[in-house]
Design a protein around this nucleic acid. Structure first.
Lengths: 234, 234
DNA sequence: GAAACTTTGTCCGAAACCGTACTATAGACG
DNA sequence: CGTCTATAGTACGGTTTCGGACAAAGTTTC
């Protein structure tokens, strides 16, 4: 369906060998990613894997009652369905669309066939899997060691990396769920960041004004896995 | 060096096909895992991968100053060096021995050769990688949502899964570093667990008395990735 | 324009945890 | 046996976050 993968907005798809591109292209279909659409459900077989062209997907670990919390973000730099890449059909994480956009997708079975046919392709997906594992590890660090405003700064920066422009459409409630904190806690932290002049906040919209400043305010919570990603993918 | 992999204490090595076992066996050497020995360093190429037969390895994300925190535990159920399995030569995590023991190890290069020669072997390592990713995700959940005594209960249970017997040789200081909390916080939490009758604590030694009780006190922080592991490896 | 709804701002007391410092105890070692 | 050292227990004030409630402001609907 999609024309030329080498010019696709998704970073994994855009740097494939011509052979691998030919392998995937006929199996890929472009779909919308409407807000809150679930892409994977904990414990259920994964039907499709998605390569976002725009928008952001949240990966959430379901810790029972009200204990779920985000463990990773996926945008146009990556793909969903890592469990399939790792050789199983499901994971104990949920994935759903956090910021609307679009993606190319294929069935999990087609992905399995393609990986079997092309080890270099599998290798490329695995390399992204490594990057995602690093991201998850540093989410654990941030959750254990950083204050709300620092974690918020980290989240906003990670989201900023994955969108066009500087505006994020998000409510405090949503962010509170992602970070696993109280909603008023997010309100206060956002006001603090706005007071520092690094973002502007309107109803339902956060605008990044000063990226460097945000990084400073994240106090080290942002950066390590991003550097690792750059090392791996250039 | 090791005699018969099918009877090895390491769960990954003990269930290989005879072909895969033959492939690995000549490259494996048994080594001690002395307390605090570093097995991987952040940003440095991984030289050896280790398949623990006993003992526990901590994987730690290095969040700068005093911000490092444990993101995962590896024992006889798994292996170190996942970055190599994923196709790169290093990670931004540290790994070091938390409880002394022994392991079979091989060079990263030999591992790469073996994986190239036997896709099913690679597949098996990847499946463990998936399990480890789940573990890391739930570490992020625990760090964000659980109280110290709940995280401590989780840690003790995870360690208990990986040792023989019921005694752990650990100081409060060590546990505090792993969990990323104050040392007196660990003291208080341990006393709470001992008061509940689920452990006994002596100087430098924690003994598990009531596993079921510990699981209850972990308040949901323990169990999900362990169930996923059982599903994958039976 | 009024009503209904969503989102955001603010407040309260309480709980969890921190940083730091100091004391107590058990084991190692001379 | 007494000293030294690592480990563990305790205390105190201060910070962060919580849970819950409520009010203010923007948006949609009728």
């Amino acid at each position: 369906m999609p024309k030329d993968l080498s010019e696709n907005a998704n970073w994994i798809l855009s740097h494939l060998s011509t052979a691998d591109a030919r392998l995937l292209q006929p199996r890929l279909a472009r779909v919308d990613l409407p807000l809150r659409k679930p892409l994977e459900a904990s414990g259920r077989p994964i039907e499709h894997v998605y390569f976002p062209e725009s928008g952001i997907v949240s990966v959430v670990a379901n810790g029972g009652d009200k204990r779920s919390i985000e463990v990773g973000l996926i945008g146009r730099e990556g793909m969903t369905g890592l469990a399939v890449v790792m050789g199983t059909d499901r994971s104990s994480h949920h994935s759903y669309v956090q910021c609307a956009g679009s993606a190319l997708r294929m069935t999990a079975n087609h992905l399995r066939e393609a990986m079997q046919e092309s080890p270099p392709l599998h290798q490329r997906f695995l390399l992204y899997g490594h990057a995602f594992l690093m991201q998850t590890g540093y989410t654990a660090v941030a959750n254990g060691r950083s204050k709300i405003e620092e974690r918020l700064a980290r989240w906003i920066l990670m989201a900023h990396d994955r969108i066009d422009g500087d505006a994020l459409a998000l409510t405090h409630e949503f962010l509170a769920t992602m970070l696993g904190v109280r909603r008023p806690g997010v309100t206060v932290a956002l006001n603090l960041l706005e007071g520092a002049g690094v973002i502007r906040a309107a109803r339902g919209i956060i605008t990044i004004v000063d990226r460097k400043g945000l990084e400073k305010l994240s106090n080290g919570a942002y950066g390590v896995p991003e550097a690792e990603f750059k090392r791996l993918f250039g």
